[in-house]
Design a protein around this nucleic acid. Structure first.
Lengths: 176, 176
DNA sequence: TATGAAAGAACCTGGCC
DNA sequence: GGCCAGGTTCTTTCATA
């Protein structure tokens, strides 16, 4: 509406979007607290509440912001144990086969096909080590799975925060 | 205030909390859409808006809900590539050493010490494969790092959704 | 201890400049 | 992008089971 009309439906979700400093600042504020009021965000980034709302609406429209989620503490809900499981699959296994199979497991909270010896890496959450064991057994029982290799998480150092996406122009380490 | 005084500061964030079906239902609704109105959530779970608010306030107080975040599309922000990097460290390396070092990398979006051959597993996001390479170089240059082993993500099958925490009583697969 | 109803305050939203 | 007005939502209080 108030920007180049090239930022249209066709660009949603897939293509890269041009964001200015203000957009990134607003995203940071919303990752911090998705229930902050527009006025609060505006105060933080130096904009009026309605200007913030217009930008947020646009950021959602172009797919930069995909939604808003409550952050939960898995431990508080009884999920005290996590593990990473590598899947070694039969030669003709398609990524969609793996996706279909593992998506039936509520314990699998993330999954990706990867380069290297293994074909896929799964992140699983469970109530205890016994539960991890049962999940691995069931994964290993899938037709296309040849073998698995798993690592239990000893201590979580950095939490996967879905929005911790800094400006690509700032490379690591932050200090230089 | 309005519950057993045992549900006090001491219980926050660490201990397990007792949650009933309604609590879990509310959490699910908020993970789905953290900006839903209390009335909407109430309609979904069968409560009035004010009852929902009271329970949400309590869920935050006991640490079951730790906050609210915008979900962002890393690709839309220019982070098109991700990788998992295993860290093999010197014998005397402490988890806190690793945490301190990797937390200086904005590209490291998750990290944990693990069982198995490697000492730690990092999840990193980068703008392209060259960027991944540079980050690995810098990680390998850390004093305590003996060697690294990395896997580039080919395709993401299941997204790490911070609140996708089902009821531990429902084991996988969902169907039985 | 937990609930629904109600009312004033705060916030969202869209039109206008 | 800011300002403003009307509609919605939040938040607290109160009565009830």
């Amino acid at each position: 509406m108030w920007r180049s009309s090239r930022a249209s439906l066709a660009r949603r979700y897939t293509e890269r979007v041009e964001l200015d400093r203000l957009d990134r600042h607003i995203i940071t504020a919303l990752v911090d607290d998705a229930r902050a009021t527009y006025a609060e965000i505006g105060h933080r980034v130096g904009l009026s509440a309605s200007a913030v709302k217009r930008r947020v609406d646009r950021l959602r429209e172009v797919g930069a912001i995909t939604g808003f989620s409550a952050r939960v503490a898995p431990r508080a809900l009884g999920w005290t144990t996590e593990a990473y499981v590598e899947l070694f699959c039969q030669g003709k296994t398609k990524p969609s086969d793996i996706a279909l199979a593992v998506s039936r497991f509520p314990e699998v909270v993330a999954a990706a096909t990867i380069t290297g010896e293994a074909d896929a890496l799964l992140h699983i959450r469970a109530t205890d080590v016994r539960h991890v064991e049962r999940v691995i057994e069931r994964l290993a029982a899938e037709a296309f799975v040849v073998r698995t290799k798993s690592s239990i998480v000893l201590s979580r150092l950095i939490d996967e925060l879905p929005g911790a996406v800094p400006d690509p122009r700032n490379e690591s380490p932050a200090g230089g």
